[in-house]
Nucleic acid binder design. Sequence first.
DNA 1: TTCTATGCAAACGATTTGCAGGGAG
DNA 2: CTCCCTGCAAATCGTTTGCATAGAA
Lengths: 142, 142
Amino acid sequence: MNVGPRSPDEVLSLLRARGDRVTTSRRAVVEALLAGDHHVTADEIAARVAADHPEVHRATVYRTLDRLEEVGVVTHVHLGHGPSTFHLNDRPHHHAVCSSCGGVVEVPLAALDGLAERLRADHGFELSTQHFALSGRCRTCA
Amino acid sequence: MNVGPRSPDEVLSLLRARGDRVTTSRRAVVEALLAGDHHVTADEIAARVAADHPEVHRATVYRTLDRLEEVGVVTHVHLGHGPSTFHLNDRPHHHAVCSSCGGVVEVPLAALDGLAERLRADHGFELSTQHFALSGRCRTCA
DNA sequence: TTCTATGCAAACGATTTGCAGGGAG
DNA sequence: CTCCCTGCAAATCGTTTGCATAGAA
């Protein structure tokens, strides 16, 4: 099922290949990302990192996540009003967020194919997947 | 086409009906909202209001928009990274935002019916329309 | 040695809040 | 005369940035 990098080293080697440097902080951020739940905020990563490396600054977490996104291993999604969440690109999907409990439902990419086609045909609009969340009410809250 | 309130008084009467007070500031905000483009940020409204009423504070603009949303005349939408935009509920629609130029394409509600049905069937998820923006590239930027 | 990446602090943009006074009903 | 609404200032939240220095290659 998972098609992307699964180990910190795998991810870090992508940075190295780009000419970037592999540092203790970056390793810690990547480890926190892999260890966490699929959708993690920068703050959650920072907290997890801080457990082992209290000196790593939030700014570094943000900068590292930025880089990882540029390299293409990571995607950030806006789930609603709160902070962005980050996740590996290993399992492409859309997000449906419950506005009541904040729960996230992962939606297969194909579910939006029809909409994408319609937007293309009617408005010449190329829907870019995965970066936006759908909002509504989940089963239990509705 | 437009089915909602079209004049400041119409909007303000909804507030009054709720027991709220109608003040100079609130009237100014409503007028700015009606005068503006369909999608306006709080800041744009504040600027427009300031032209005639320099004493009206940004906080009041936010508070008034909040109230109007509670009453159901106004909706705010997150178009992307920037500030929220507000618009009257007179012409329900979805929003597709170009991540490149920031342009907004208004998409008919029906365009998401299929998706909504699928989310309901597959995930028990009730898609709530109009509050989220779809992102992608518009015709000219793609 | 050479530069990139880091920590720190401060700035930032959007929005919210506590408070005491002003004004609508 | 009552309270709601307001202006103001300050706080908050998520995120970014300038700077001098540590540290990877």
